[in-house]
């Protein structure tokens, strides 16, 4: 160790600002930092980033022999198993990248002292949130891109070609990922320790995937279970994505016989706002008197 020099090369002007500009600049820098760390964690890479691709592959291969979904009695028509599973896997990816990733990640950061350390620095809480949400957005775009690539190249799923479908995709995706990220930050309060984080957060998310039409065809679930799933956002993300990727005729098996995108938008918005309120009210760098 050597002594530090006294010289103070760039005395910044005192008004060099703790305003919005700084919050955004630090937020942008946090996105790069958080994203870099994300890809260094092999467990997140497997259970969050690659999970939907792996599940799509398994289901598509396993159920190939059952023929097409929604085929005519003579076996013609319908769509491949991969095409049928794709919308649900995209919705699951959105949920995992936001809720599971941030829920576990922030619970760990709270428990290992990262948040406490950050709380002692002049980092604005908002910049920290921007960093997390930016990381979720970047990694999730890559994840969905990979899913679409594998679906179309490996399993020959025909992707939509009309602008309208992709517009729907864009807003369902943006609303879905924003809601997921916010809910991830909100539920990171629940685990009491970093060790219990995965045990507390992963099981409910897994159950949600089973009842929300990710692994099991939603229209085959009993009404009461559909209604339970309808409370949570994943069902609505899945419904929105089915509207994008499935043929129009498949709307007939949806509840009410239509895609009902209006309800998708409302349900996701309600969850987004609720999540923001919970974050605003409950997020602290540390549990003050633990």
């Amino acid at each position: 160790m050597t002594a530090l020099t006294r010289t103070n090369p760039s005395p910044s002007s005192p008004a060099a600002g703790f305003g919005v500009g700084r919050t955004l600049r630090l937020g942008a820098s946090r996105i790069a930092y958080e994203t870099r760390i994300y890809f260094r964690q092999t467990d997140t890479l497997f259970f969050t980033f690659l999970f939907p691709v792996i599940m799509l592959t398994i289901f598509s291969v396993a159920f190939q022999g059952m023929g097409n979904v929604g085929a005519n009695p003579d076996g013609t028509g319908g769509i491949s198993q991969a095409a049928a599973y794709l919308p649900g896997m995209i919705a699951a990816g959105i949920l995992l990248s936001g809720v599971q990733n941030l829920g576990v990640d922030i619970a760990n950061e709270r428990s290992d002292g990262t948040l406490k350390r950050l709380g002692g620095t002049p980092l604005p809480v908002l910049s920290y949130f921007f960093g997390k949400m930016g990381q979720v957005f970047v990694t999730s775009v890559l994840q969905i891109g990979l899913l679409l690539l594998v679906a179309s190249v490996v399993f020959g799923v025909a992707l939509p070609t009309d602008g309208g479908s992709w517009m729907t995709f864009a807003w369902v995706y943006v609303l879905g990922i924003a809601t997921s990220a916010v809910l991830g930050i909100a539920i990171s309060r629940l685990p009491r320790s970093g060790k219990s984080a995965t045990a507390v957060i992963i099981p409910p998310i897994l159950i949600l995937q089973f009842i929300s039409g990710v692994y099991l065809q939603f229209s085959l679930l009993p009404d009461w279970l559909q209604n339970v799933a309808g409370i949570f956002p994943l069902k609505w993300m899945g419904q929105g994505m089915r509207a994008v990727f499935l043929p129009e005729s498949f709307a007939a098996v949806e509840p009410g016989g239509v895609w009902d995108l209006g309800s998708v938008a409302i349900a996701l918005l309600v969850w987004l706002v609720a999540g923001l309120v919970v974050c605003r009210l409950t997020f602290r760098w540390i549990r003050k008197d633990s």
Partner: peptide
Amino acid sequence: LGIVLQSSGESGNVTVREQLTEFANLYPN
């Protein structure tokens, strides 16, 4: 302020230089 807490124990998937650069960035000078 500069704060050195009693326990460190961060997961630490960043290098020493990356971490210091990130933290230096938070301060005006």
